[in-house]
Write a protein that binds this DNA or RNA. Structure first.
Lengths: 254, 254
DNA sequence: CAGTGGTCTAGACCACATT
DNA sequence: ATGTGGTCTAGACCACTGT
């Protein structure tokens, strides 16, 4: 194999991780779009000057992070929000008894506002920065169960229109991806219990002060930039938030 | 390499997964105990009759599931619970502002009861089976914030005494491991919002019907057997539940 | 059929930890 | 110095997909 020179920034970094970063750069630069296949493993090996094993280790990590998706016999594809799996990767509310179901989304309002202090902090933008604010109501099992209040930094979503949001036949995250080239790679959620405010109570058709699950979600893209802040208010009479964790066991020595 | 016959159950299963299962069997049989090293990779290659690459792929999955831990230059160890790690792994409540802190656990009561219908279903035991019931109150920042109600199947924890639980200077999961050979490998949590019951309100010093975060946690060991059912009632004035999602690592079937 | 990813091998050398 | 895990190679063959 020809000698291939390692870039300066890659000193001390395993080769497969350097390859991984190069693939991520290509993705960030839009060389391969969501839903499209990336070149075959052999091609990528030639391009980066590494063996299959090394390339596969890089792609392994990217598939584990849901950035790429492999299909045996077909190829490796850039993850796209059109797939159902993505929907449920980020939507954690399910019936206490019975099967998972898709929420029925009802658009209520889109407005442009100056972000408040709390929102600025969570979004990582300047105080008073412009944001798009979207209000949705979600139905599950034929009943209004969730109120979503969404804040989007104007700098990622310039020109977003009410029509785009109201008329879409896809998930919001797919809209972000298709229309604004914003890929959600990771989310973080903080939960607490609150009594329903008058506004939320009216939207859900319940009494004020009814205990609700309050979820503050931040959605991140490349470089951990926050692209969405979402407050969800969930009526948990018949639904619940589901999470599972693998253990963090460690050996004594560490 | 000598011909090594594959076991019947392994038909259609990749070799590395068969090796993984054999390692898990050895762990379940107590061949290597928590905190101890497992044999070196080369030894395991000989034992299972596979190449390093294949063995490493098996061990890769086991480390990803936190069942084994690798230390370069030292060896590969069976994961073990230690006090500090408990926080990061299973305890998801943290202050809304400020640093993570250790909860101050106050033991309230241990009793033996017959499990109710809901508990039987969640624990996967027969209706009316005997369980150990433990009631704890947890303090954070000098204030009572959480009430924990814990149910343990008698068949895993026969002979558990109030003294063991009250006098312990470790986490409960470490007690399960050290005294009852029960390793918690995975947990699942379901959250909803409820109004405080009279009992819980009294323990937390709050008004009845105050909105609380209610967490139902199931803790699993090998073969996904449920070894603990825990109801946590959390006052979320100053604390919240934290979760983050990046890799939904499930592949089977797809 | 040709092309893709999936698995597996039998080595090699490197980085790290312990003796 | 020895033994450990960490990385990497250059092949091979298998299983699956589409034409």
């Amino acid at each position: 194999m020809d000698q291939v020179f390692r870039s300066d920034v890659a000193l001390g970094m395993p080769l497969y991780r350097e390859v991984k970063h190069k693939i991520m750069e290509a993705l960030r630069d839009g060389e391969w779009k969501p839903g499209e296949p990336v070149p075959a493993e052999k091609r990528l090996c030639e391009r980066f000057g590494v063996s299959v094993g090394t390339l596969r280790k890089a792609v392994d990590e990217l598939t584990a992070e849901n950035i790429l998706i492999r299909h045996q016999g077909r190829g490796t594809f850039v993850a796209s929000h059109s797939q159902d799996r993505y929907m449920f990767g980020f939507f954690h509310i399910c019936p206490k008894t019975g099967q998972k179901e898709y929420p029925k989304v009802e658009f209520i309002r889109l407005s442009r506002e100056k972000v408040d202090a709390d929102g600025a902090k969570r979004l990582g933008v300047a105080r008073g920065a412009k944001v798009v604010r979207i209000l949705n109501r979600l139905g599950l099992g034929g009943r209004a169960v969730i109120v979503d209040e969404i804040f989007l930094p104007e700098r990622f979503f310039a020109g977003m229109s009410e029509e785009q949001v109201r008329e879409r036949r896809t998930t919001l995250y797919q809209l972000y991806q298709d229309e604004f080239d914003v890929a959600v790679l990771r989310t973080e959620e903080r939960l607490d219990a609150v009594g329903a405010s008058a506004d939320v109570a009216a939207l859900l058709g319940i009494a004020e002060d009814t205990p609700l699950l309050h979820i503050v979600r931040r959605a991140m893209t490349f470089r951990d930039e926050v692209v969405e802040l979402r407050h969800s208010y969930v009526l948990t009479d018949n639904h619940e938030y589901f999470a599972h964790e693998e253990s963090t066991l460690r050996t004594p020595g560490e």
